[in-house]
Nucleic acid binder design. Structure first.
Lengths: 186, 186
DNA sequence: CCCATTTTTTGATAATTGTCAAAAACTTTC
DNA sequence: GAAAGTTTTTGACAATTATCAAAAAATGGG
């Protein structure tokens, strides 16, 4: 799905807006494994994923902890760093060869000014991020490891093949061994 | 702390803006125990807490689960319902007699228009909410029950006296019994 | 296609937290 | 200030998940 196609499901995109988005956005490709952002850098871009898979992760006691996965038709960024203009607390990494549309912070501010209808997009993205977090908390607080895995399997089935056991386990807040056992018994 | 005083630490409040805020906001008092918002209602107000304590909670298997506490100089609202204009998934309740400043959604939109510098406030509140959630997730995922309790004791010491064991336990994602044992051994 | 490396699985055991039940302590109300 | 209600504590036991170690399977580069 293209960025324009995705946005069209939320707001009506005029020809002028479509042109402007094309003009100010940048298509980039990122090879599998590459870092898109490092911890302590400022994250000044929002990435729309046309193809591929990205994760955010950081380190706890030397171990990688995956904070989120984002796949086709989703946005990826260190949301905190992006909105607060502060150093990122997480790395962004392509887990597959990716085709991305990059929108910089300043480009986005300009879009808001020129095309007020795009404000809704900004709000949507914020809400989206917020709601995902809410759900994750409820999940972590009240579901067993198995239930959390099953929920993920339902909402992002392809992820189970596309990300490694360790990446998924850390995202679910459990050890690799536990996730491996959950998989084998199911 | 008054609302104006609190906002002054972030942006410069002109006399005109101060007047306008006074004109469009509403001081309200809410007695201890009272619900401020019920599940499934639309949350159309943002509350600044000048005095008192509020919690957000919902039910899981008939049991109350506290999602957050907000005290003096903090904002309280069902953030999701407020920004997405959708029914709330949580109740808001005063845990003490409260003195609040109420700002409605539409009033806030008008403020953004008339006083562009207030946009930063909106962003701040959003960020604040988001960052609290982020921290909570990291806490739930990688800290033991005891560590989570100790962290809360450091960040909001007065809360330990002001909220009940059950409310705090559900917020920390543990049972009352476990929290009681953590307290007694410490 | 094979060796080296990484990832996943399996096993045994320990630690953490939950569940259920009942007693103790604290509050509220008349 | 005593009875009723609520909240907190304690105990015994069970379930879940982590830890450590090692084997098995999968992957990647030459």
């Amino acid at each position: 799905m293209t960025l324009i196609g995705h946005l069209s499901s939320t707001i009506t995109i005029s020809k002028a807006l479509e042109k402007e988005i094309h003009a100010v956005s940048k298509k980039i490709t990122v090879p599998k494994g590459q870092r898109i952002l490092d911890i302590d850098e400022r994250c000044t871009s929002l990435y729309f994923i046309e193809k591929g898979l990205i994760r955010g992760f950081h380190f706890v006691d030397g171990k990688e902890i995956t904070n989120w996965f984002a796949q086709e038709s989703e946005f990826a960024t260190c949301f905190y760093s992006f909105i607060a203009c502060k150093p990122s607390f997480e790395n962004l990494q392509a887990l597959e060869d990716c085709e991305l549309v990059e929108l910089s912070f300043s480009v986005l501010q300009n879009l808001y000014q020129q095309f007020p209808e795009t404000e809704r997009i900004g709000r949507m993205i914020t809400e989206n991020y917020y709601i995902k977090l809410e759900e994750r908390i409820l999940s972590l607080q009240f579901k067993t490891a198995k239930e959390r895995y099953q929920k993920l399997a339902l909402s992002k089935p392809s992820l189970l093949q596309r990300a490694s056991l360790g990446q998924i386990a850390s995202y679910l807040g459990i050890t690799q061994e536990t996730l491996s056992r959950i998989r084998s018994e199911a």
